Computed example of a mutant assay.
Amino acid sequence: MDKTSGEFIVGRHPIAEAIKAGREINKIWINEKGKGLDPDLLKVIKEQKINFQFVPKQKIDQLAGSTTHQGMVASVAAHRYATVDELFNKARAVDEQPFFILLDGLEDPHNLGSVLRTADAVGAHGVIVGKNRAVGLTSTVAKASTGAIEHVPVARVTNLARTMEDLKSKGVWIVGTDADQKQSFQEITADVPICIVIGNEGKGMSRLVRDKCDYLVSIPMRGHVTSLNASVAAALLMYEVYRHRLQIGD
């Protein structure tokens, strides 16, 4: 029998209805043998660019918690996603220059939760994440954010590079990080609409996202490791923007 369980929707019919209703879906797992797969449903999944993966039946059994899943399980968002316009509206409501964080391929839910927690602490107006190959708003993220997920809107977009172009057209300056840059993160210009970009935990920013940044800054390091944890790097940059804005306010 089809069913919905926690942050998972189990069964092709409930999944099809969830897609039809516009429910935010993080990922769909499909039996690699294709048993019972509706080709029309797969077509819709592809057309809407929903992240999906073919896996062994045992994996679906594990996710569903049973063997009665019709060969499909979907992970759904634990919270509603915002639109990018809603992020701008939040900044406008408090009469502040927009302050966003864009995450390029962040995969660890604990890192996303930490980013949300810091974003709330510094008064950022929202976080932007990609739709594919990135963690969504799961219950683990909600727990790691220690409640910040209720206060920091997260917009989920299909194309990060296009979204960056849209942000720039609205006057937002986009800042990425690069260890080889001479300009330190302490030289960020914060009295303008700004969006900080944080890359994937292992690969960093993708080439396309990097190329769309207005400028890059480095985080000076003197130890033996070559990079910081993504959420730690994000926290340093967010607090630098916050510090600059406090000084400007004074």
Rank of each mutant, 00 (worst) to 15 (best):
D191A: 06
A21L: 10
S139T: 14
K49D: 15
M205L: 15
V232D: 02
E47P: 11
A144D: 07
S75K: 11
L112V: 11
E17C: 09
S169C: 05
N159D: 15
E201C: 09
I174Y: 04
N31I: 03
A179G: 06
L42S: 02
R156P: 06
T189R: 12
L42N: 04
P14I: 05
K90P: 04
V135P: 06
L116C: 07
E96Y: 05
S114C: 08
D250K: 13
V129Y: 06
L41E: 11
P98I: 05
G130D: 11
Q48V: 13
T177W: 00
E32Y: 10
A234K: 02
D104Q: 08
G199Y: 01
Y242A: 13
R23P: 12
D85H: 02
P153L: 03
N229E: 03
T226K: 10
Y215A: 06
N26G: 12
K46A: 09
T68P: 00
S75T: 04
F88G: 00
K182T: 09
I194E: 04
C213L: 10
E32C: 13
R243V: 08
L216N: 01
V152Y: 06
I19L: 07
G71R: 02
R210P: 00
L37R: 12
I9N: 00
F54W: 10
Q70V: 03
E107K: 14
N26H: 12
K170T: 06
P153R: 03
I28G: 01
L41G: 10
M238R: 01
G71W: 02
G126H: 08
G36F: 07
H125Y: 05
V154F: 05
N89P: 00
V76F: 05
I9E: 01
K27M: 12
F100N: 06
D40R: 13
A91C: 01
D108G: 02
L167S: 09
I128V: 11
P193D: 10
S206P: 04
Q58L: 11
Q186R: 15
V232S: 08
N26I: 15
R222S: 14
T140C: 02
K35I: 15
S114A: 15
V152T: 10
S227W: 01
V152P: 08
A179E: 10
H244D: 09
D61A: 12
S206A: 11
E187Y: 10
A121I: 10
D95E: 15
L216P: 01
Q48A: 12
M221E: 06
Q62R: 13
E24S: 15
V73D: 00
T177A: 06
M72F: 07
F88E: 06
D38V: 04
V225C: 09
N51G: 05
Q97T: 13
E165G: 12
L246Q: 14
G171L: 13
H125I: 07
D95C: 12
L116P: 05
T189W: 02
T146R: 15
P193L: 07
Y242R: 14
N51E: 15
T140N: 11
D250H: 13
G136M: 02
H69S: 03
Q53F: 06
Q53D: 07
R117H: 08
E201F: 03
E24C: 11
K3C: 02
A179N: 01
K43P: 03
V115S: 05
T158H: 09
C195T: 10
Q181F: 07
T68I: 08
I9W: 05
V172F: 11
E96I: 03
D120Q: 14
